[in-house]
Simulated scan of single mutants.
Amino acid sequence: MTTPQDLFLVSLDVPGEHPVEQGDLSLALAGAELVDLLGARALTLDGERIVPGPALTTGERMLDEAGAALERREPYETVEDWLWRRGRGLAAAYRDVLERAGQLTGRRRHWLSRRSGDSTPADTPARQHAADRWWSREPVLAGLAAALGIESERPAEAPADEAVVTVLAAVGDAVNELEAVRTRRRIENAAFDNIWRAP
């Protein structure tokens, strides 16, 4: 299993302070892909810019798609730009992959499907693997989950790799930026409603 797949399963299995928003999860999944591609040496970071390495085949379709989507012309893409570009619709794509692999069962959360209801990970080795990473407080998975508001009472250590720390920080910043946009829209919509309600 890949880090994005583990993160998706943890987002369903571990309760957070609030339900995980689709957009937030999509950004975090894009960050998780970068971390796995860093680990596979498919890319390096030059500051915040993603420098692609040789094209690799990992055997994981979504990860291979991510590697193929890397910008290969200078000045290269920043981590932030990658999160917003690659993250578009990524949560739904991972949902579909995991469903086809039999990793999700039952009813789904409101944004995970055309139907309403809750989704739960199937009781599979993949789910156990994700849970083991989560409960061992593996730094990358814990850092990505924390950006989504999923935290444990037992803190995780910071990742040792500076490039991974850069990716995790960018994910946190992007999720905060998206929440600020949501808040601004709620305020604007409330103000608009008040104008129409005014006598």
Rank of each mutant, 00 (worst) to 15 (best):
Thr105Asp: 09
Ala66Tyr: 06
Thr2Lys: 01
Glu71Met: 01
Thr78Cys: 02
Glu179Phe: 01
Gly106Thr: 07
Arg86Met: 11
Leu56Tyr: 00
Ala142Thr: 15
Ser113Asn: 14
Ser152Ile: 03
Ala92Ile: 08
Ile187Ala: 04
Ser152Gly: 08
Arg127Glu: 11
Asp24Trp: 03
Thr3Cys: 04
Arg197Ser: 15
Gly172Glu: 14
Pro75Val: 06
Met1Asp: 09
Leu104Tyr: 06
Leu45Cys: 02
Asp64Tyr: 07
Ala174Gln: 05
Asp24Tyr: 00
Glu138Leu: 03
Glu151Leu: 03
Gly23Asn: 10
Ala91Thr: 03
Leu168Gln: 06
Leu9Gln: 09
Ser113Ala: 15
Glu80Arg: 14
Leu98Glu: 10
Val10Pro: 04
Gln103His: 14
Leu56Glu: 10
Thr166Val: 14
Asp96Gln: 12
Pro155Lys: 00
Gln5Thr: 15
Glu177Leu: 07
Ala130Ser: 13
Phe8Asn: 01
Arg86Asn: 06
Asp36Asn: 02
His18Val: 10
Glu21Thr: 01
Phe8Lys: 01
Ala126Trp: 11
Leu43Lys: 03
Pro52Gly: 09
Arg182Trp: 04
Arg107Met: 06
Glu153Trp: 01
Pro15Trp: 00
Arg184Met: 05
Tyr94Ser: 00
Pro139Glu: 11
Arg115Lys: 12
Asp13Lys: 07
Arg186His: 11
Glu188Ser: 07
Trp111Ser: 10
Ala69Asp: 15
Pro155Val: 02
Leu70Cys: 09
Ala40Arg: 12
Arg41Glu: 15
Thr57Leu: 10
Val171Lys: 06
Glu17Gln: 14
Val181Ala: 06
Ser26Pro: 10
Val165Leu: 15
Glu17Val: 12
Asp13Trp: 05
Thr105Ala: 14
Glu138Phe: 02
Gly23Pro: 02
Asp123Val: 13
Val181Trp: 05
Asp118Ala: 11
Ala92Glu: 14
Arg88Ser: 13
Thr44Ile: 04
Ile150Pro: 04
Gln5Met: 11
Thr57Val: 12
Pro75Arg: 01
